[in-house]
Structure formats: structure tokens, C-alpha cells
Design a protein around this nucleic acid. Structure first.
Length: 420
RNA sequence: GGGGGAGUGUCCCGAGUGGCAAAGGGGGCGGACUGUAAAUCCGCUGGCUACGCCUUCGUAGGUUCGAGUCCUACCUCCCCCA
């Protein structure tokens, strides 16, 4: 454990953000003077960022809060190439249109946690398509390519692992690290950027940028020392990768993952992870987290509720977070029908006489009749909190309580049929 | 260019003798126990108008009462030689 002088590194350290750094002292000195200009790059492979990316956004937030300048870099150019890090197979190449759509869709999240503008510590957003697409192949080989040793590139994890597993690695992907390294130098040159942060899987790519900066400095480019800082890979205490659920990733955009589901995701955190996540994913002061951390047994649930509400508020706003907390309390603790569950309206006459299989399919709780049948056989479906015992059950007048029928899939997924 | 090998249940890995809706894992989901946790145990993990029918083993044909399994061509990938 080292001690840092700057509040930036102190904060990152006590909250558990730090995995590796190329030079702690150098970063500490810059941070102390408020002269850090740090960037994180974001892939545009999906229409939303997910909680894996959230870690680095939080880091940028702490950076800004400590008086330094953050840069968010959209990978409009690099996404056209595809990052091979941590992937077994080549991903399908996205079209330029898809990438642009994704880029626009992703952008909205940053303003929740970062202040943009023209001021000294205001965040700026850039897109590496602006310079990467203008590169000339021969010039690039001469100016940048000569600084890269293929011997070394082959030894990078992102390449080596592919080769060891006999997995295909195309030339386009092989170039990814060069482009990312170039990004760093480009940002250093034009924006004074001096630090790149990212997940631990990005270490190799980031270091390449640092090295490129040094090599070019000796030659033609007026550049300053560049630094690298990475966060640990996020896993749950039981070792599973963070952020994957049955339906896929935990997205940050509300239209892809509702505030309620997002709240639920954090609410279902394992006991052993609560303190760690409070530090990483909320802005609660450390002494308050210490109090929550001290809770034992079933009281840990209070800490989880706090975690869920705080984390949801950061991304979806305080109102949405409180509403999600409220819905959860009614649904789970009081068994009351909360009306902001997913609701599907149908004429009263149609609901009466509707088969349960249809009802669960219509409300999208079950994907097929077969799935509904299986779950009924296993006691997993219920109507108005009463377990359904037969797949031939027909909804009747008595199932409609104050014009609602509450359908539940397991204990955690609910939907309402509303009679109109 | 020559020789050898591989592609299996649309989540992944992986058995598979001509009778196969296809072994076994992992993951996921549901149930029990709990605290909306973890661990553990049990069940499920192609579709349907459902004791029956339809669609699935790289693609397209063929042999056969019957093909994941045999034959032919093609596609993709890997290894060795040049």
C-alpha cells in the first residue's frame, strides 16, 4: 500500500479502483497540481454502455471532482477495426451507420456523471474517427508503424492468447493496438492529455500508447510523459463476471434496461460484494460506507437497498431511484400490487376466459407456451401471488382485483394485466 | 499446390454404435431452505392446436424402411509438407 499526496489517487485507492499504474509518483505529482488530463476510450459496439464501463466513468468523475480534466473518447474509428482484447473470436464488423447510431445512443450517459464545457476542468468528448479515418496508409507506416516491433506485438496478451488457442486473428484486428496507441499520442499532442485509464484488459493497449509517445518524443513530436492507470476486472465474490444477467448485459441506457431492473440488479448483490460496490459505484462518503459495512446478517439488506438506490440515482436520477425502491418495497415486503410494474391493457371480457399460458405469453414473462407449462409444473408461476397448479387454468372474474391481474414469474419478475 | 483433421441441441464446452429430441458438463431459469444474498439440495433448460405432430447435428444432394452417424459435392476452420 502506498500513500498518495493527491486527493485523486487517495480517493481511487481507498475506493478500490486501482489495479496497475505505470508510474504512481508521476501521476500523483500531476494530480496534486491539478494538471492531469486523462481520457478513457469507449467502444461503440453496442447502443449503450454497460456496468463494466461504469467503473471507468466513476473514475473520470473522481478525476474531475479532484480538480483535473477528463476526456471521453468515443471509438468511432477504432470500433470499425475491432478490439481483440479478451475475445476468443473475431467479432462481426459493424457498419459505419451502426457505429454512428451506437455512438449517439451511448453519449447520453456521460452527462449524468460528468460536467461538460469549455472550462479548465470541464470534460470534453472526442471521437477518434475524426483523425483515424484521415490517416494515410504509407505515412502512417512510416511515422507510427516503424515504432512497433512485431515481435513485441505478438507477445501481447490480446494476440498471444488467440494464437495459443489456434483462434483466427485477422490483420485488421492486429492493427487495433496501433490505432489505440496513436489515439493517446494524438490526444497528448492536441489536448495535452497525459493519462489514459481503462480496465485491466486494456493495460497492453495503454502501455503501447505510452511507449509510442516516448519513442516519438525522441524524434519528431514534442510530447510530454504519458501515464497508464487501470482498474481491476470486475467479478462478483463468487467469481462470476459482473454485469451479465439472463437477458444479457446490464445496460446503462434506460430504454434498454429499466430503472427498476437496474435497481433490482444492485439489490441482488451478494453479501460479500456490498462494501466493495458501495465504494466503487456510489458517491457516499467513506465513513458512511463504513457504517453500512458493519451491518450483519439480515441487516445487510439495508445496505443493499442503499446501494441500489444510490447507484440507480446516479444513472437514472433520484426520482426514478426512489420510485424503484418504492415499487420493490410494495411488491416484496407488502405484497401489494404496485401499479408501475409492466402493465398490459386488455378488455375485461378478453381477460375473463383467457388461458394462463396465453396470459403469461402476452405479458412477455414467458417466451413460449412450453416454457409456461414447464414453469407451472415446477411451481414457478403465480396469479395474484397464488401458485398456478394447472396449465389449463382459465382466468375468471375473481382473478381481477380492482381491475388488475398480477402475474408473477418466480419471485422477482412481475407484470400486470389491466382490465379496461 | 499435396496430405491429414474438425464443424453437434442458435448461450458455451462436448459424447455420439444407422432407430436420436440426441449422453455428460458449465451457464441460465424455477422450487426448497433463507434475508429479494451466498452455499446446499431438487426440477427444468427445441416448437405446437400436445398420450400426437413439426423443426433441429456446417450447406446442398444421394444411399436406406430409417441418416448426426454411410456416399458425393461445396463452404469454413485447424495441423503437417511445399
Amino acid at each position: 500500500m502506498q500513500t498518495f499526496k493527491s486527493s485523486f489517487l487517495q480517493t481511487l485507492q481507498e475506493r478500490g479502483f486501482i489495479h496497475q499504474c505505470s508510474d504512481f509518483e508521476g501521476v500523483d505529482a500531476l494530480a496534486l497540481k491539478g494538471e492531469l488530463i486523462a481520457y478513457v476510450g469507449y467502444d461503440c459496439t453496442a447502443a449503450s454502455l454497460h456496468i463494466g464501463n461504469l467503473l471507468s466513468i466513476m473514475m473520470l468523475h473522481h478525476l474531475q471532482a479532484s480538480g483535473n480534466k477528463p476526456i471521453t473518447l468515443m471509438g468511432g474509428g477504432t470500433t470499425r477495426v475491432g478490439d481483440p482484447s479478451g475475445k476468443d473470436e473475431t467479432r462481426k464488423l459493424l457498419t459505419v451507420e451502426q457505429i454512428n447510431d451506437n455512438k449517439n445512443s451511448i453519449k447520453q450517459v456521460f452527462s449524468k456523471l460528468l460536467t461538460f464545457g469549455d472550462g479548465k476542468t470541464d470534460c470534453i468528448m472526442l471521437d477518434n474517427a475524426d483523425w483515424l479515418t484521415k490517416l494515410n496508409y504509407i505515412d502512417m507506416l512510416r511515422d507510427i508503424g516503424r515504432h512497433f516491433s512485431v515481435n513485441r506485438m505478438l507477445s501481447m496478451d490480446s494476440v498471444k492468447l488467440r494464437l495459443e488457442r489456434d483462434q483466427e486473428m485477422s490483420f485488421i484486428e492486429f492493427n487495433y493496438m496501433i490505432l489505440q496507441a496513436y489515439d493517446f499520442v494524438e490526444l497528448a499532442r492536441n489536448y495535452g492529455c497525459n493519462l489514459q485509464m481503462g480496465g485491466s484488459d486494456q493495460w497492453g493497449n495503454i502501455i503501447n500508447g505510452v511507449d509510442l509517445g516516448r519513442r516519438m518524443k525522441n524524434k519528431e513530436v514534442e510530447a510530454h510523459q504519458l501515464y497508464a492507470l487501470t482498474t481491476p476486472l470486475l467479478t462478483t465474490a463468487s467469481g462470476a463476471k459482473m454485469g451479465k444477467t439472463a437477458s444479457g448485459a446490464v445496460w446503462l441506457n434506460a430504454d434498454m434496461f429499466s430503472a427498476y431492473d437496474y435497481w433490482q440488479f444492485w439489490r441482488n448483490t451478494e453479501d460479500a460484494d456490498v462494501a466493495r460496490f458501495l465504494k466503487l459505484f456510489t458517491l457516499l462518503p467513506m465513513d458512511e460506507i463504513a457504517k453500512l459495512e458493519a451491518l450483519q446478517g439480515a441487516d445487510i439488506n439495508n445496505a443493499k437497498i442503499r446501494l441500489a438506490t444510490e447507484a440507480t440515482a446516479l444513472i437514472h436520477g433520484t426520482d426514478a431511484a426512489n420510485q424503484a425502491a418504492d415499487t420493490a418495497r410494495k411488491t416484496f415486503e407488502q405484497g401489494i400490487v404496485a401499479t408501475n410494474l409492466p402493465t398490459f391493457e386488455y378488455p375485461r371480457a378478453e381477460i375473463i376466459g383467457m388461458g394462463v399460458l396465453d396470459a403469461f405469453r402476452i405479458t412477455q414473462l414467458c417466451a413460449s407456451n412450453g416454457e409456461a407449462r414447464r414453469l407451472i409444473a415446477g411451481g414457478g408461476l403465480s396469479v395474484n401471488s397464488v401458485s398456478v397448479t394447472s396449465h389449463t387454468h382459465i382466468l375468471s372474474e375473481t382473478d381481477i382485483v380492482e381491475s388488475f391481474v398480477k402475474l408473477s414469474f418466480g419471485k422477482k419478475k412481475n407484470a400486470l394485466l389491466k382490465a379496461i
